[in-house]
Design a protein around this nucleic acid. Structure first.
Lengths: 119, 119
DNA sequence: CCGTATCCGATCCGATACTG
DNA sequence: CAGTATCGGATCGGATACGG
């Protein structure tokens, strides 16, 4: 992954950190602690393995996500958010989630929220 | 602009609201009140008029930005963030800005912050 | 179970030119 | 000053197949 050497403002970097369709959702899914790849794939509707690994990798390189590998067989890997940058980013993601929930309520999409237990 | 009719989670909508290289920066630039197009173009390094108008338009359609047109000549238009959704989104953007500032400090990019008066 | 590689259509975004 | 139209390269993201 490229980390550009010419940034003109802090938000430009953060955009690189979290751009991509799945990154905010991934951060949200890690809010309660470490999760395996297989679980993430199960919990996130519509994602595929390629996107999952690719975007987790980028989040890891920016210090938002931590990857932990455990010895033994079968292979076991867990992903979690980092206590510093990851936690802060989660705060931003939670605000955005609230915005999304409000938007859905106001626009007749509440059914989706219900079936997810968010309402 | 399309508002998909199939969303599977609130963060997916919010991603549509703020995706794009310039949207977080635009929201940040409107933090202190209404600004004209020409001023935004001056304040945001590297943006061009097309992107400026395009992304402001999308933010407006999602209720994050408000466009106000004043009568008279020359034409005067001002953009501001909305008190509800726009303000909340600004809260998220401010967290992200702080993350970006930290990141830059930790990675020897503090010079950019200095020249912007952010440090 | 975890990760990599490739292919390909969709979209993003920058440059540029033009209108009121 | 504010906004529209178009074009082409770069990037993104989904499907699929393969390897540790």
């Amino acid at each position: 992954m490229k980390i550009r050497n010419e940034y003109t403002c802090p938000l430009e970097i953060v955009h690189d950190m979290v751009k991509g369709k799945w990154k905010p959702i991934l951060i949200f899914q890690l809010r309660n602690g470490a999760v395996t790849l297989a679980n993430l794939e199960r919990q996130i509707q519509g994602i595929n393995q390629k996107m999952l690994i690719e975007q987790l990798k980028e989040l890891t390189e920016y210090g938002i996500v931590k990857r932990t590998e455990y010895e033994g067989y079968p292979l076991r890997v867990e992903y979690s958010i980092t206590p510093e940058r990851g936690k802060k980013m989660l705060d931003a993601v939670l605000i955005m989630q609230a915005i999304g929930i409000d938007y859905m309520k106001e626009n007749g999409m509440a059914d989706i929220l219900k079936c997810k237990g968010l309402i």
